[in-house]
Design a protein around this nucleic acid. Structure first.
Lengths: 125, 125
DNA sequence: CTGAAAGCTGACACCGACGTCAGAGGCAAG
DNA sequence: CTTGCCTCTGACGTCGGTGTCAGCTTTCAG
């Protein structure tokens, strides 16, 4: 086994990526269309992904859950890939962070209100 | 001033409700359409709301922000109005509560990841 | 009286992350 | 060869809270 062969990543098809990451095949294609993923192609045209794509997809899901759009994620991807950021990216990062924090506070407030009601409705059957 | 007159609420039109609650007129009409609000009508057909409608609308906004749909809110409204709940409503309340709590946890995790990146990109300009 | 501002109904547009269907090709097993 | 599963492209559908436009009536201030 040569160094080159050892370094060669085992490539996986879209179905395996989707299953491993817990999303649909459609979703993975969508991410590629939005510029979040790149894939090699087999001679017949099938997408071939690196294994760590699964981690990336899980990360996307987390960011989606936090309310980031695919556009924003695409704009911030270089921060992860290269670890380098310009002023605009740093400001976007902070903006998203603040937005999420505000959302957490809103949700917590809503949670408190629901808990009040639950407490009342439990003592007043 | 009779007791009846004192008890008669001052009714406000949709524009004032919207402004006071910080939403659009369109939104208020939508809430009514979804069964979240009821309004009297003036002889000419204009909607007339009670003053506490403003509080109610703000509450709707908070629930929307927490991810409840107008349908769910409508189903749970009696819990607020009457303070009485049946088993189904109590289970819905708990389900929503748990869903929001999970969402808070997700957001917090996303927040932590963003903060990591921010920390890195600040020390590595 | 008159014009601006506000209200009414009804209906179509929008966003964003997918679901879903159609029609066609690829690939290993029996 | 066939069967069955996977993959491809392309395109339209979905949901939910609102924006928005059209066309008409009501209200209010000057």
């Amino acid at each position: 086994m040569t160094v080159t062969e050892a370094a060669a990543e085992r490539l996986v098809r879209i179905g395996e990526v989707a299953r491993s990451a817990g999303v649909s095949v459609r979703a993975v294609r969508y991410y590629e269309q939005q510029g979040l993923l790149t894939a090699e192609r087999s001679p017949s045209g099938q997408r071939l992904y690196r294994q760590d794509t699964v981690t990336l997809v899980r990360f996307f899901q987390q960011m989606f859950a936090a309310g980031l759009t695919s556009r924003r994620i695409a704009e911030l991807l270089p921060c992860w890939d290269t670890g380098h950021t310009d002023a605009e990216q740093r400001s976007m990062l902070r903006a998203e962070r603040d937005r999420i924090q505000a959302k957490v506070d809103d949700l917590q407030a809503a949670l408190d209100r629901l808990d009040e009601v639950i407490a009342v409705t439990d003592t007043h059957p």
